[in-house]
């Protein structure tokens, strides 16, 4: 079974983001970047299946500017067999990304695509579902438990109010939630070894796809600030405030 894992490079989740002066973008220059945490989980899942002998090859793919190579090298250091880098200076919305991934999934003849349920930058939560639609494959989203069999997979999904379990025929798309696994720490020898693994570069323009963003972001603003309230001295005071000032209990 061949598995494609889509990994996105995002601003490191522990970095406080800054908005540019024109309020049109989040500043990306000279900011620490990282692999999207949900994609790290997807990669870990693929690697665990490979170690169990269920998956034969793990292919990492990423789309973006040259700096994205770093994230792919990291995927290789984690244990991916090869990486595909789709070079694009322009930033595309999820539908275009899904079209690129659909084309690569077919070219690479993969049976399973794994990716995070959402990227922590734009929080769209769309790409996996869109990819499944374009390929007409079944999907299991927000997965916190995954079992692979020869012709199907059993996925437990984190849904509002509980856990839902589905069985999907393979090929399929699975998007991963936080609690699926704990991604491994990369060791130094693996980083060295990763430099020898194949990383193919292709330009997004050479993919033969017509891509354009249909929805435009016009402004980006900081969230409205909530003003701090008052500090109280006792439970009695709290109950009084809630009852007589906020009139809420």
């Amino acid at each position: 079974m061949r598995c494609l894992v889509a990994v996105k490079q995002v601003i490191d989740p522990y970095v406080h983001i800054r908005i540019n002066k024109e309020q049109t973008a989040v500043i990306q220059e000279n900011v620490k970047m990282a692999m999207n945490p949900f994609d790290e989980i997807a990669m870990e899942a693929a690697l665990q299946f490979k170690e169990q002998g269920i998956i034969s090859e793990v292919i990492a793919v990423s789309i973006g500017a040259p700096g994205v190579q770093e994230t792919l090298r990291q995927a290789l250091a984690r244990g991916a067999d090869k990486a595909i880098m789709v070079m694009s200076e322009k930033s595309y919305n999820p539908l275009s990304i899904a079209k690129v991934l659909a084309k690569i999934s077919k070219q690479q003849e993969v049976d399973l695509v794994l990716m995070g349920k959402q990227a922590i930058d734009n929080d769209c939560n769309q790409t996996g579902q869109m990819l499944a639609a374009l390929l007409d494959w079944p999907q299991a989203t927000f997965v916190s438990k995954l079992q692979l069999e020869s012709t199907s997979l059993i996925a437990t999904r984190e849904v509002d109010g509980g856990l839902e379990t589905l069985k999907c025929k393979i090929p399929a798309v699975v998007t991963t939630d936080l609690r699926l696994n704990e991604p491994r720490v990369i060791s130094l020898p693996n980083i060295m070894q990763a430099k020898k693994k194949p990383l193919t570069e292709i330009s997004i323009e050479d993919m033969g796809l017509e891509l354009n963003n249909q929805i435009a972001t016009t402004t980006i603003q900081p969230p409205p600030k909530r003003k701090a309230g008052v500090k109280l001295n006792s439970v009695t005071e709290l109950v009084d405030k809630l009852r007589n000032e906020a009139k809420i209990i």
Binding site: P94, Q126, Q129, A133, T141
Partner: peptide, 22 residues
């Protein structure tokens, strides 16, 4: 919600349009 997030992007892709989330 988990329901809408699961289904709607799939609809958008079938329609070949982008989705506005959340």
């Amino acid at each position: 919600t988990c329901f809408g997030k699961d289904i709607l992007p799939r609809v958008a892709a079938l329609l070949d349009v982008e989705q506005i989330s959340d």
